[in-house]
Design a binder for these strands. Structure first.
Lengths: 343, 343
DNA sequence: CCCAGCAGTGTTATCGCTAACAACAACGAC
DNA sequence: GTCGTTGTTGTTAGCGATAACACTGCTGGG
């Protein structure tokens, strides 16, 4: 009595056996056609394809994942923020991974502490993802990755430059040094720095590159103004700097900080770039329309995304080596926020 | 000879039967413990939990999905952009969906044309996701959704306000009208508008709200300057407006356009807000640090994300009705870019 | 002329889980 | 005491795919 009158049939999705029956072959042959196996007669292949088309058959990924023991899913862990760098990178990676035939599963964490990152990674492992990408720009986040068994394919992005394993980063020091030299070359005696949060590798690297460039040039190294990445904190730091007449050049750790500094300078009546020069970092799309247009440093996020995938894929296929780093050198973009110092 | 000497065993992940054997029960009992079935003796439950812990057992989601016929995955379709609105919404949704126990799979499309959206939705259906969310802010994107069978759980965000089905949007007209009235109330005779791309519902809604507010107030309706969402296009529009002395108030369709306009006005020597007042839309985090700080309209993206999930979940569970809309009213944020007109 | 080798196809077992039902003990109601 | 009821557990049968192997005809080299 099961499966008799057509009216009673529940709307079950067609499975491989349904295709097989319609095409007059075994389900294994259907599987072979689907997976591009060579030993299938052309005529058979066409018959199977026609049957697939006619039934609107979609292979069941869960069944495939079960029997093969692997999924086509890449798990990503990222912070719940709209910071330009991480967002751009994430979007670019999602696009690249899709193009490579992977599904991208994103897990956002509210904070970049060790426990949150660990939980997010464990979540992905529960899902038996093929590989994991973690945007791990802080020490706490990076530490969490040390707990992950070495045999699971994992790439850290923006992580600790000193870490083992696969890593993609931007050469923060080179970018910061370029920005600093650009200001020194314009004639400034020294360059002040408003940094990002101290626990971010990006921020630390930029501080380091800035300091190194100053020392190399024999310039005095002024104290760092610590901030977070926001325009608001840049504004607060800027209010201090605006009051100090000896400040003629500022390197901000990102463009939004630079915007806040710009705002503070303007409020205080210090003209940019006539009295104070400013350089940012990131090259957000709006940077060219700040007042004045901001000179900044541009990392290539698309390249970072591509590199991430290139490190991850061999690891997924079991051909990846242990430790491997990809370091991208950012590029200085000169606009109108830098000039010679007054006097 | 299979499964004999311990040294030979390949590293297979523990399965339910392994847990069962260790706990001295059947695998079905393990399943019951895992799924919180009530009829399990407390002592048995503890024994099973201990065995799970000892083996580091993780349930195989693929096997579960195969037998139950449903996954815990929500598929999202979004454009490959870092536009503030969509990015914020996406991040907020990912967080909310994770909290509700779902995995979020993101598919980015390069362009919002019909074919791309359709392909992305089909991709998610291939994966047999439990539900789909599409950020569909253009007519072409929205049209693609009409092809999707009504029985699959789908929520459109930022889609056509006229569409059937589940939809979450911001009340663009109310926001635009509030911005326009704010400028009229400051004493301006009329308000000029720099719009977003015409094929975006957001842009069209803002134009409509602006026009309606002007007409209601009996003010003249000047021609619209069409732009895309970028600061660059705002700058170009601003260059035109800056040359026209009769322009004393501008409502920009988003904050980045406003920034470009601000830049153009400044270059032309037209002071904001003394000579020209400007209002934006979105309240990007930096808006408060533009020169001058930008008066703008803030949508609540967290609320939109929550609403999206609230519309989607009942549809996944089969208890969702046909057409249902959630409309969020944005809020005016007054800063310093608006003043009375000169003279 | 026989048989190894290969192309093309089918058969069977299996992945790890849940659903459905069967089995059995303990219990109180009649 | 018999019986249904309830709680607890085990057994069996799939879900829909791939892997491994078996089977059929041909082909061609000796």
């Amino acid at each position: 009595m099961e499966n008799t009158s057509s009216a009673v049939r529940a709307a079950r999705e067609p499975a491989m056996t349904d295709v097989a029956r319609l095409a007059g072959v075994s389900h294994q042959t259907v599987s072979r056609v689907l997976n591009g196996h060579p030993n299938v007669r052309e005529q058979t292949r066409l018959r199977v394809r026609a049957a697939i088309e006619e039934l609107g058959y979609r292979p069941n990924r869960a069944a495939r994942a079960l029997v093969t023991g692997r999924s086509q899913i890449i798990g990503v862990v990222a912070q719940n923020s709209t910071l330009y760098g991480p967002s751009s990178l994430l979007a670019a990676f999602e696009l690249a991974a899709s193009a490579a035939g992977f599904v991208v599963s994103v897990r956002r964490v509210r904070h970049l502490d060790r426990a949150s990152i660990t939980a997010a990674v464990e979540h992905h492992r529960d899902q038996r993802v093929a590989g994991i990408v973690v945007i791990a720009p802080t020490a706490a986040a990076d530490e969490a990755l040390a707990e992950v068994p070495a045999d699971i394919p994992l790439v850290a992005v923006d992580g600790d430059p000193e870490r083992g394993g696969a890593l993609v980063t931007v050469d923060q020091e080179a970018g910061a040094a370029a920005a600093t030299r650009h200001l020194l070359d314009a004639g400034h005696e020294t360059v002040w720095h408003v940094s990002g949060p101290a626990d971010w590798f990006d921020a630390a690297g930029r501080v380091h590159g800035w300091r190194h460039a100053l020392e190399t040039a024999g310039a005095e190294v002024p104290p760092v103004s610590a901030a977070d990445w926001s325009a608001a904190s840049g504004y607060r730091a800027g209010q201090m700097l605006a009051r100090m007449p000896e400040v003629t050049a500022v390197f901000a750790a990102n463009d939004h900080l630079a915007l806040g500094i710009l705002r503070a300078m303007t409020e205080r009546g210090r003209r940019v770039p006539d009295e104070v020069s400013i350089v940012g970092f990131d090259d957000v799309p709006e940077a060219a329309y700040f007042t004045p247009p901001l000179t900044t440093v541009r990392p290539d996020f698309d390249a970072a995304a591509t590199d991430t995938l290139e490190l991850l894929l061999p690891r997924i296929n079991g051909t990846g080596s242990g430790s491997e780093h990809r370091v991208l050198t950012p590029e200085l973009v000169a606009r109108s926020s830098v000039a010679a110092p007054p006097g």
